[in-house]
Write a protein that binds this DNA or RNA. Structure first.
Lengths: 164, 164
DNA sequence: CGTTTGTATTTCACAAATGAAATATATGGA
DNA sequence: TCCATATATTTCATTTGTGAAATACAAACG
């Protein structure tokens, strides 16, 4: 029995008490929250031996997934889903650890470049097998077609959220 | 063009660089994060006029969805997807605002009951139309069959996460 | 040019969340 | 009864995340 069952039951009671309450959207939003918490906690636990948090991992991986291994804070905020003030803090922490290098841009002196360091790249290579293992276990319950369908529907959901 | 596109492109580059990196699970996990952030921010903004945050709203609604309008912290933690230490803090805040009442249990003196107050109920009635509106807009892009399918797949995903 | 407007990033004070330890109570034997 | 173990909640120090203001530069326009 899923940890979600009690939540779902309480939404059912809410629907009874508030006929205008739209069950389906409410269930989806709660599921997203439960999933996010779980994914976040699991990733934090997995990454602990490497001394980084899940948000820090996300930053490193967004740099890793970029030609040139460098982005500026604004791009990073969008790619990693963080606010820019938080990017500053996370980048500070990653720089202190020597995983990221911060350099001022020449063409536009307002901009800053955050680049993966040698040590950052090495760290990624090091934790990659464990991360791949986790990701595979996480989606192991979904058949490929189901995962593709889920991806499609989540994107549609996100589009709608961003539309207004 | 969705805010997710840059993230997705970077995952594609990562797949090229790390052949073992499983694209589909990684995309799903990122989508969940982006969706959660968005939902969380929108809910916080909507609820601001009523002086409560999204997590506080979740607590109130879980109590509302319970026969007797009362739960103890452990149940609340599970239903709302929060850690128990955080429930203490959120309950403190809601008690201070007079929306929740904390009473010790008689049968088991370790337990505590958190119950919706009169004012809490009234507040829910007050913000309910706005919340229903938000929920409906959020899922407006999904046809009923799609929403149902999405619910089914998210539950399957969550089950797998909780399995290990 | 000089001035306005806009963009990029950081700072700072504060709010939110967490892990681990502490406290209090229950429960089930020996 | 006494003790060991388990459960429920809170405390506390610390980490994480935020909005709003501040800073610094760029770009457009008269």
């Amino acid at each position: 029995m899923s940890s979600f069952t009690p939540t779902e039951q309480r939404l059912a009671v809410t629907c009874r008490r508030q006929p205008a309450f739209p069950r389906e959207p409410a269930v989806l939003v709660r599921l997203i929250k439960h999933l996010y918490k779980r994914v976040h906690d699991d990733a934090n636990a997995l990454l602990k031996p490497w001394g980084i948090s899940h948000p820090e991992y996300n930053i490193l991986m967004m740099l890793y997934g970029t030609e040139g291994y460098a982005l500026n804070p604004t791009q990073l905020a969008e790619a990693a889903g963080e606010k820019s003030a938080n990017i500053t803090r996370l980048a500070d922490s990653l720089c202190e650890k020597g995983l990221v290098e911060r350099t001022a841009s020449d063409e536009d002196r307002r901009k800053v470049s955050l680049a993966l360091s040698k040590a950052g790249l090495a760290l990624i290579d090091d934790f990659m097998p464990a991360v791949c293992g986790l990701l595979e276990r996480q989606a192991a319950g979904l058949k490929p077609a189901e995962a593709a369908q889920l991806e499609r529907l989540l994107k549609k959901f996100l589009d709608q959220l961003e539309r207004g």
